[in-house]
C-alpha cells in the first residue's frame, strides 16, 4: 500500500485484525497445527480451508483462547487472546464448529443471555437477524433441527456486531437458500468494516465472499492466495473432439496436463495453469470441437492436498 511505510508500526497494529506467528499446537505427540503464520487485515474476508483434521478448528480454538499454543503466538485486534480475553471477546463473534448450546432454554432466552453477557445488545439486532434467517425464537434450542440450531449460532455470533467474526464451518446444516442468506450477511458485515475469518471444507461457498483463502493440510499452511489468482491457476477439465483418433502419449507429456484419457478421437484431460501448451499440441490435428469447463476451484483446492506441496505443475505432471 503506498504511503503506508512511514507509520508502519502504528499502521500494522491497527490495520491487522488477526495475526498468527509460528502458531503451533501439539496434543501430546499428535500435531494440531504447526508453524502457522497468517495475517488478516481489518475488513477482510478470509476463508480458511482444508480437509477434516487439517487443523482448522485447532487454529480457531487457539484464537479464542480455548487452547494455549505449544509455540508461537496469536493476536486478535492487537490483543492477546489470553491476557486480554474479556476485552477481546466483546469484539469477537464466534460460531463453534460443534454447536452445543448450554441449557434447555428457548432460543429467545438463550439469546437474551448472550445479549446480557456481552454487556447489552439492542434486541432489534437480534430480531432482525432472526427474521433474515427465518428463525422462530420461541422454540427450545434442544428440540431444533441442525439447520435451525446453526441459525441460532449465527444470530449469536453476529448480534453484537463484533469487529471480528470467527466462524467454524458456518454453513453446515443450512439449506442452499439459507447458505445464500448467510453469504449475504457476510458481505454486509464486510461492507460495514467487520473482519471475517471463516473455516470451511467447501471452497465454492468461500469463493463467493472471500477476498483471500488460506489452505491448510496436515497441520500446515500450504497456501494463502487471493480468490482471483486461485482462479488463474485453476485446474480445468478439457475435452477435445478430433477428426481422427489421437495418441494419448502426445498429450500426457505436456506441462500441466494430466488425467489424459483418449477414446478414439475424443481426448479428455485436466489442465493445471496455462492452457496454451495443450492448444498448441491440439492444433497439429483437425479439431472438431473443444469443451472447457469453468475453472473448478473445488478441484484446484483438492489438488492442494491430494498432490503434495503447492500442487505445482511438476507434481501435477507426475501424478
Amino acid at each position: 500500500m503506498p504511503g503506508r511505510k512511514a507509520d508502519d508500526d502504528v499502521g500494522m497494529t491497527s490495520d491487522i485484525a488477526l495475526l498468527t506467528e509460528d502458531l503451533t499446537k501439539f496434543y501430546g505427540q499428535r500435531r494440531g497445527i504447526e508453524g502457522l503464520s497468517l495475517e488478516v487485515r481489518a475488513g477482510e474476508v478470509v476463508g480458511f480451508l482444508g480437509p477434516n483434521g487439517a487443523g482448522k478448528t485447532t487454529t480457531i480454538r487457539l484464537l479464542l483462547d480455548f487452547l494455549r499454543p505449544t509455540r508461537g503466538h496469536a493476536s486478535v485486534l492487537g490483543l492477546d487472546p489470553r491476557s486480554d480475553k474479556a476485552a477481546l471477546h466483546r469484539q469477537i463473534g464466534y460460531l463453534p464448529g460443534e454447536l452445543v448450546f448450554p441449557g434447555r432454554d428457548k432460543a429467545e432466552d438463550l439469546l437474551r443471555f448472550f445479549a446480557a453477557a456481552r454487556g447489552g445488545v439492542a434486541w432489534s439486532q437480534v430480531t432482525e437477524l432472526a427474521e433474515r434467517l427465518d428463525l422462530d425464537l420461541s422454540r427450545s434450542v434442544r428440540t431444533m433441527s441442525k439447520g435451525n440450531k446453526q441459525k441460532v449460532g449465527l444470530v449469536q455470533a453476529f448480534m453484537h456486531r463484533p469487529a471480528v467474526l470467527v466462524l467454524d464451518e458456518p454453513t453446515s446444516g443450512l439449506d442452499p437458500l439459507m447458505q445464500q442468506e448467510f453469504l449475504a450477511m457476510v458481505r454486509d458485515a464486510s461492507g460495514a468494516g467487520q473482519t471475517i475469518f471463516m473455516s470451511s471444507h467447501v471452497l465454492a461457498e468461500v469463493q463467493q465472499v472471500a477476498d483471500r483463502v488460506a489452505i491448510v493440510r496436515d497441520g500446515q499452511l500450504v497456501a494463502v492466495e487471493r480468490v482471483e489468482s486461485l482462479g488463474k491457476r485453476a485446474v480445468r477439465a478439457v475435452e477435445i473432439h478430433f477428426d481422427d483418433p489421437v495418441d494419448p502419449a502426445e498429450f500426457s507429456v505436456l506441462p500441466g496436463v494430466s488425467d489424459v484419457v483418449v477414446s478414439g478421437p475424443v481426448l479428455k484431460c485436466t489442465v493445471d495453469g496455462r492452457i496454451d501448451p495443450l492448444i498448441k499440441a491440439a492444433a497439429r490435428h483437425e479439431v472438431v470441437d473443444m469443451l472447457s469447463a469453468e475453472p473448478d476451484l473445488e478441484e484446484t483446492f483438492l489438488s492442494f492436498y491430494y498432490h503434495g506441496e503447492g500442487a505445482g505443475d511438476a507434481s501435477r505432471a507426475g501424478a
Binding site: L64, D65, F66, K85, A86, A87, L88, H89, R90, I92, Y94, P96, E98, L99, V100, F101, P102, G103, F114, A117, R118, G119, Q156
Partner: peptide, 18 residues
Amino acid sequence: RPEEDGGMELMLANPVSR
C-alpha cells in the same frame, strides 16, 4: 459437564476472563 458436552464454548466465548 458443559466441557464434556460442548456447551461451555459458547459460555466461555462471552467477554469474561477464564
